[in-house]
């Protein structure tokens, strides 16, 4: 998965071992596509989620983001959720039902 230009510290092609304060997180959708982000452990994950939606060109609330099956709240941080380097986040499209 290659990176493109973005002001949100998007994926990098060569994964560096993250320093003490930063970790790499993978965001993948239900089609198996994956985007990688680097984020500080104390940065609210709202930034990552917004960046992902922006990158996908969709409304900010189009996706629900899950970590180990738990919904990620906007104020959560990697530190708070116990995320580790190269952990994966699921980006699930909002499931509209109305039939």
């Amino acid at each position: 998965m290659s990176s493109d230009t973005s002001d949100k510290k998007p994926a990098v092609s060569d994964v560096k071992t993250s320093g003490g304060d930063q970790i790499n997180l993978k965001v993948r959708d239900a089609d198996g596509n994956e985007v990688q982000f680097r984020i500080k452990k104390h940065t609210p994950l709202r930034k990552l989620m917004d960046a992902y939606c922006t990158r996908k060109g969709v409304d900010l609330h189009s996706y629900r983001f899950l970590f180990d099956g738990n919904r990620i709240n906007e104020d959560d941080t990697p530190e708070k959720l116990g995320m580790e380097d190269m952990d994966s986040i699921d980006a699930m499209l909002f499931q509209q039902g109305g039939v």
Binding site: M1, K26, R28, A30, D31, G32, N33, E34, R64, L66, G69, S88, D90, M92, Q95
Partner: peptide, 18 residues
Amino acid sequence: MSTFFYKKITSVPQRSRG
């Protein structure tokens, strides 16, 4: 179960860097 569980188990397995 989570409302996303079914979607998850019927999703395409992840493709990661080849």
